[in-house]
């Protein structure tokens, strides 16, 4: 007979992790260069959104990017891949 656990309390002691936004804290602190979007150049192709390894770029209703600076690690993939160079990298001020 397979044991069925009604809730987490009935289960034997098991290490379980819960999905958490920012499991490593605000990773934006890792950033050296800050991406900035020139919305007048942006063609809404959403390539920056799909290539962001940190899921730190959200799509607005018109498909233009919204960068979450709390979590963006500043890798620069978005700026490198933007076909019209609408994203540029700037050194973070102290």
């Amino acid at each position: 007979m397979v044991a069925v656990h009604k809730s987490r309390k009935d289960m034997p002691l098991t290490p379980l992790s819960s999905p958490t936004l920012g499991s490593m804290g605000k990773t934006g602190y890792w950033r050296t260069f800050r991406p900035e979007v020139d919305y007048s150049k942006c063609t809404r192709c959403t390539l920056c959104w799909i290539y962001c390894p940190d899921a730190a770029i959200e799509r607005r209703e018109d498909d233009s990017p919204k960068i979450d600076y709390d979590y963006c690690k500043g890798c620069g993939i978005c700026a490198n891949e933007c076909p019209v160079k609408a994203i540029t990298m700037h050194r973070e001020e102290e």
């Binding site: 999905p19 958490t20 936004l21 920012g22 499991s23 490593m24 804290g25 605000k26 990773t27 890792w30 950033r31 192709c45 959403t46 390539l47 959104w49 799909i50 290539y51 962001c52 390894p53 940190d54 899921a55 730190a56 959200e58 799509r59 498909d63 979450d68 709390d70 979590y71 690690k73 500043g74 890798c75 620069g76 993939i77």
Partner: peptide
Amino acid sequence: IKELPQEEYLLKGHAACAGCGPSIALR
């Protein structure tokens, strides 16, 4: 690309290095 769902199951603030290739694949 635009038709792909916007829900994220790889949550922001994970511990990968900046510019991680496997994280893009996981998303």
